[in-house]
Every structure is written in C-alpha cells, then in structure tokens.
Amino acid sequence: MIRTLPQSGLYKIAFRFYVVLFYIFLFAPLIITCLLAFNDSSFPALPWKGFSLDWFLANGPDRVGLFHDRSNLSSIVVSAQTAFWVSLFSVVVGTMGAFLFEQEDFPGKQGLYFLALTPLVIPGVILGISILLTANSLGIYFEDNFGLDVPFLRPSFWLVVLGQFSFITTFVLLVVSARLKKFDRSLEEAALNLGASRFEVIRYITLPFLRPALIGSGAVAFLMSFENFNTTLFLVGSETTLPINLYLQVRDGSTPIINAVSFLLIVSTSTIALINLLLSNRKS
C-alpha cells in the first residue's frame, strides 16, 4: 500500500507507469509548443525543417518575429501594467482584510467573511459581465444626470484592473490570513505595553512577520492577473491584454509567433514560480 509496507512488484510497476504517463500528459503540450517556436517553417507543425530564430528576430518581409510585432509587444506591456496595479491593490486590501478578520471583532463579522470568500466560487465570466453591467449603468447615469462622460466606466484598462482585483484580493486575503494565524500576539502586547501605538506595532512587528506571505501572494496575484482570461474578456477595451490578444490570433489561425510568445511566457513564469517556491521553502 505505502512505502513502509511490503508491496507486490506488479503494484509498484503499474503505479510507476501510470505516474510517468501522467507527467508526459502534463508536459507534452508545453514542450511541443516551445520546440515549434524554433522550427524553420511557416506553420506551427512538423516536419522539423531546421533550427531558426526567425519567429523571434525576423523583421519582414516574409516573416515578422515577435520582437518586431507591435501588437503582441504592446499587449505584453498592457498585461504587465495591469498585473502590477492588480497585485498592488489586492495585496493592500487583502492584507487589510486579513487584519480585519483575524484581529478585529465587530457585529456581522462571520457574514462579511463569507462574503469575502464568495469571489472564489463565482465563475469569472459572471464577475466580468456583472461588473460590465454596473459600470455601464453608472456611466449612463452620470451622462444623463450630470452630462459627464466617465471614460473608465466603459470597457477599458482600469475596468480590467477592477474586475481582476475583485477576485484576486480573496486569494491574498486567504494567504495572508493563514500566516497571520501563526503570529504570536504576545509580541504585539509586549510592544503595546512598552508604549508603541497600534500602527507602530503593525509597521515594525506584524508586517515584517508577514513579509514572506506578502511577497508570495503578490507574486501569485501578479501571475493570476497576467494570465486572466474569463473576467478580462468582457471588460477589455482597446488596450488588449496578452491572453485576449493571443486568443484572437489562435481563433483566426495560427503562426509560430504564438509559439514564440508562449515560449517566453513558459520560461518567465516558471522562473518566477521557481524563485517564489525556493524563497518560501527557505523561509519556512
């Protein structure tokens, strides 16, 4: 059954076979995508026609590589900006939420906590359309009553930031709360007794203790925002984020330039994820 008990040979072999198959299944699409980014062919398909960096570097007239493709490059920048603001806002509000639910007491706390968890079980598409509807109604209201045109209430950069923030904050809240639960409150009491104010305590004692959770959840928030599709789909304006831009290209037929973007994404996200994992392992 388990490693400490005697196991039959067949059981062991069958299990190992299954796990190997599972990992092949897991990595096959990613490896193929990366490999075909370097194929010297106009289609992301076999046969292998030789190694080429054209899909990264070429600058016309037959092929345009990623580094000269303005639409993909600008969508990468838009995604990075979105992810920056989303992770900043969600870490700030999520941390405040963690303090609120772990350290404060007020009537209706249970109900509010339940409400704060719901974004995790609301499908992203629904969050997207309901925020779109609300922003649109607000926009009409301002226009009819005050003659004001509020550009960010139309599908736009900031609406995407708000939409992603609305559910990513819950993840930050959960991660930071888990860390805050392990905090020894007698440290705070000692500081308070020694004359520190509540905010000095938070600034010099609690926040340093929370730092790994803040960095970790910030990195996760960044990645979640960077690759979000469902919520963004309904809120995106003229500045398309990378996943939306890639979706439009994949839907309308594909060129190896998508493989080149994917290759960069795979390499950079796994680097961030690995650094994050190593840091959190060392800390704990």
């Binding site: 096959a28 699409p29 990613l30 193929i32 995508t33 075909l36 992301p44 398909a45 990645l223 960077f226 690759e227 599709f229 990378l242 996943p243 890639l246 979706y247 994949v250 594909s254 998508i258 493989n259 994917s262 994404l265 795979i266 996200t269 796994s270 961030i272 994820a273």
Partner: peptide
C-alpha cells in the same frame, strides 16, 4: 503557472 491559453494552444498543435 503558464496561461491556460498557452496550454490549450499546445493541445491544438498536437
């Protein structure tokens, strides 16, 4: 950690 779109695209190529 890689975007869902990239993973789906990988399956489409396969």
């Amino acid at each position: 950690w890689v975007s869902e779109l990239v993973r789906v695209y990988g399956w489409m190529i396969l």
